[in-house]
Design a protein around this nucleic acid. Structure first.
Lengths: 164, 164
DNA sequence: TATTGTTATACTCTATAACTATA
DNA sequence: TATAGTTATAGAGTATAACAATA
């Protein structure tokens, strides 16, 4: 016997939770945003797992691979992570042989992050995996909606630290 | 002297980070989603702070106030939190005098969460505060875009545990 | 035998302050 | 005096397993 006694609350396929969607919370944009992000995040992390990466380390690697030669401080500001978190993030990448710290020319305090050859290679595959995951994650939206969504999210993100 | 030596990377108003937006990462929907969510989340938490609430406890309180009489298991499923996390969440609300555990009629294993009078009162004010914060947070979008965004996020969230 | 709520534990994440070396 | 990176530490958040009461 399962869930036959209190039929009104628990006889749905999803465990009887659907009725909770009909609340202020289930109709709140911020809540839906958090939920969508959680789904997207765990999909991305799952896709990156085979490469020993997470979204954090992947982001750093991605920026490094583009040849932007970011300083740790820039990564801290851009990714909104504490400088100390960047340290361990780059330690990870260095220990995995994917990136290195290089001293900046003009300022001996500054480190710049550069990818190794293996870093570039791993990144190419990891990127494919995340893009595949992202396609699946946003497959419920058509191309125009996906573009709209991206534009809106970009607008919202821009409020904080303006791109361009 | 500040940031005049390596002018190409650090002479912008935002700390020179804007150049990092022109990367794969800065153009990634999942990344923008995470950023937008972080902004929305911290705005909501800031708005709730005066009431001794966070988004988590606020969500539980909101559901309770609607009279849905959710079980802890339902809250766990709906909010995608471990049952043990629900325990401490409700402990918080109970200690603050905002909600109580009530035994379910048909199943003596089950607790149901109900608001206190003070819980209802606090929620009304907290709700106003979060709505104000949400309005500010999404003010960069016009009404139609906000509606579109909400609909899209709802679609994405629905993939996981379907509402309705 | 399965489920609800609970406790305990460990692990990750996050935030903070203090330290060094450079500027 | 201020900044880049580092270290250490404590707090919050998360995941897991084991347990008692009940079904």
């Amino acid at each position: 016997m399962r869930n036959t006694t209190s039929s009104t609350m628990t006889d749905r396929a999803d465990g009887g939770v659907s009725r909770l969607w009909n609340t202020v919370v289930g109709n709140d944009t911020a809540f839906l945003l958090a939920r969508a992000n959680a789904l997207s995040l765990s999909a991305a992390n799952a896709a990156l797992e085979p490469y020993g990466l997470k979204v954090r380390s992947y982001s750093v690697l991605a920026i490094a691979v583009e040849g932007v030669r970011p300083t740790q401080r820039e990564l801290s500001d851009f990714l909104r992570l504490d400088p100390s978190q960047i340290v361990s993030l780059i330690d990870e990448l260095e220990n995995a042989g994917l990136a290195t710290r290089e001293p900046a020319q003009n300022d001996r305090r500054v480190n710049v992050v550069a990818p190794t050859e293996q870093g570039r290679k791993v990144f190419r595959h990891a990127r494919e995996a995340t893009q595949r995951a992202e396609r699946e994650c946003f497959a419920a939206l058509d191309a125009r909606d996906r573009a709209r969504l991206k534009a809106m999210l970009s607008t919202l993100s821009a409020l904080d630290s303006a791109p361009g």
